[in-house]
Structure formats: C-alpha cells, structure tokens
Design a binder for these strands. Structure first.
Lengths: 158, 158
DNA sequence: CTAAAGAAGTTGAATTCTGAACCAATCGAT
DNA sequence: ATCGATTGGTTCAGAATTCAACTTCTTTAG
C-alpha cells in the first residue's frame, strides 16, 4: 500500500527495526571504542590486529587487509602507518609481486593482542552477545545474513 | 564452558552473528552515504534534517538534537555550522534559557528534505528492509531492542 | 543574596578520514 | 616486444571528528 506521492514509506514495525539497528550499531561501537581506550587501541587498531593474528604467518597483503576490514586502501595505508609508529605492525615487501606489501604483526603487536583480546571479548559479550540470548543470536544471524550477502556482492560492482 | 585461560570466547554462532551485525552496519552506512551524495548530503546531514522535520516548529534545542542523533555537543556544533553555511538550518536564541540555542530548519532545508526523503527511504528499503522480509523485521527488532535499551541507559551513566 | 557547582554551547588544535591524483609494476593483447 | 589497461599502494589536500579548554547562564545550598 503506497501513499499518493508514490513513496513507500516505512511502517511502524519497519521504522523501529531500522532505528534499533542504527542505535545499537552506533552506541555499541562507541562503547567498544571506549573499552579499548585504556589499552591505547582504537576499534580499527583492534580489528587489524585480529585479522593479522588469524592469518598465516601473521601477515596479510595490504589489499586483502583493506577488503577484510571494509575500508579504503587510503584509509588502511594511514592506519598501518600509525600502527607501525606504535610498533604494532610493520610493512614488508612482497617478493612475488614487487608492487605489493605485507602488513605483518610484530611481537609487540602479538603480545598486545593476547593481552587485549579477552577484555574485548568480554566487552562484546556484556554489551551485545549476552543480551541477545541463544535464540536472539540465531534470529539475528538469520535476519542479517542475507542483507550482509547482498551488500557484500553489491560492493564489488559499485 | 570456558577455556583454561578463563576467557569465554565466542562460539561459532556467536561469532557469525556478531560479524553479520558489524558488516551490515558498516556496508549499509557506506551505501546509504553514497546514495545521498548526489544530493550533496551526508548521512549526518540527513539525520538532522529528519529530526528537525519531525519536531514541533521544525526546531530543536542543540542538546536534544545531539542526544537524538547520538553525537557529542562539539560534533553537533560543527555540523550545524556547516549546515548553516549550506543554508539548510539556522541557529536561533532560546528565550526561556539564555544559554540555549535552537537549531531550526530553513525553508531550503525543508524543501531539501521533501526532495531527498523518498530517495533515502527507497535506499533503506532496497538495501535493508526489503531484504529482511516481515518475519526478519520482527525478529531483528525482537533481538535488538533489549540491546539498544541496555546501551541507551548505560549511556547516561558512563 | 551570594558563591560554588552544573548545564548549554562554542572554539581551536590535533587527529583521522575521504577522494582524487599519482607512481610503479604487472597483465593482456596484439 | 610493446603499448594500453589494471592492480597495488601511497600521498596530498580538504573535510570531518575528537578532546579539552573556555564562556555564559542557571541552579542550588547556605
């Protein structure tokens, strides 16, 4: 059912779902960011540490890292420079492709990761996971997975 | 069940739900932002226009606007300055509290809103709402509402 | 009535982010 | 082989964001 103007506005249920997603997204990021502050890390820092930690040889190509963390190459480049200055990662040349670079976790980066991860996970639990309950978790994933899929594929195109 | 270290890591279901939320959140914001670009608006611009449009007399106190849009007073102040320069809003003194200011929608702001809103809603539908389906919408809201509530209350405190 | 504390907003400097321009290396077709 | 198109990555300038300091007004307590 559309209005006379032809615009298919959101109904009440749609609005509140949309707003809930928006609010949770923003408030949660903000809270997680604050919980990381005592360790001198930002959310972005942390996510990069996670990605490198879980990778073969604790290293990833810049492009792959940018794709995995959903940010532009430019932003990642700046980010890695900062983390390099902080001693958490280093750049290393790629032999198979002389244009390429690896972002590599340093020992210090790895140590930082091992120290911080438990706190971060606790934070994610406290402010998100544990509030959902098992059924909420499945419901959430069931709802969101198709959206994520849609957006990911559309990303390559546009 | 915890590991020997005492940290209650996320299991597979929890991880994928968490990541889905994260990915949707970021990809969607990015996509919506891009869809607003042709109109010369950012997401933040748009949200402020919405809030003012829906308010009595098309005006809101700065503090309330900051709270409603979940941003710091500082950020909002800069934001309003930009929008003022763009002719979308203006500041107006508050008589009942001489410290206070209103952010007020200009005619141009209102026109912009009426023009852009249909496109934005279409975008939200296309990339989010319509991918969830009716059941997904309810499931999502059911899952997220308690989290949003938790975070909102915790916000005042911390 | 007054002093201290708190609330409303702004400002400015430092940081981060964005988008376009750029360089260098690789690929692909002739 | 070589020329054009892509890919990987950085850099620069401009815009947005953060954080702390600051001003002005209001509220509260004595």
């Amino acid at each position: 059912m559309e209005t006379e103007t032809g615009t298919n506005w959101l109904n009440h249920e749609e609005q509140r779902a949309w707003r809930a997603h928006l609010d949770v997204s923003r408030l949660l990021m903000h809270k997680l960011e604050r919980d990381l502050q005592p360790f001198g890390l930002t959310n972005n820092d942390y996510e990069i540490l996670v990605n490198l930690s879980e990778s073969e040889d604790h290293r990833m190509r810049m492009s792959d890292l940018a794709a995995a963390t959903l940010q532009s190459k430019s932003r990642l480049s700046h980010q890695i420079t900062r983390m390099e200055n902080a001693g958490l990662v280093r750049r290393e040349n790629c032999e198979s492709d002389r244009r390429g670079l690896y972002g590599v976790l340093t020992d210090r980066g790895w140590e930082t990761m091992r120290e911080v991860a438990p706190h971060h996970v606790a934070s994610v639990r406290q402010h998100f996971i544990d509030l959902l309950g098992a059924s909420g978790i499945d419901a959430l994933y069931g709802s969101l997975a198709p959206v994520a899929e849609h957006l990911r594929t559309r990303r390559k195109i546009g």
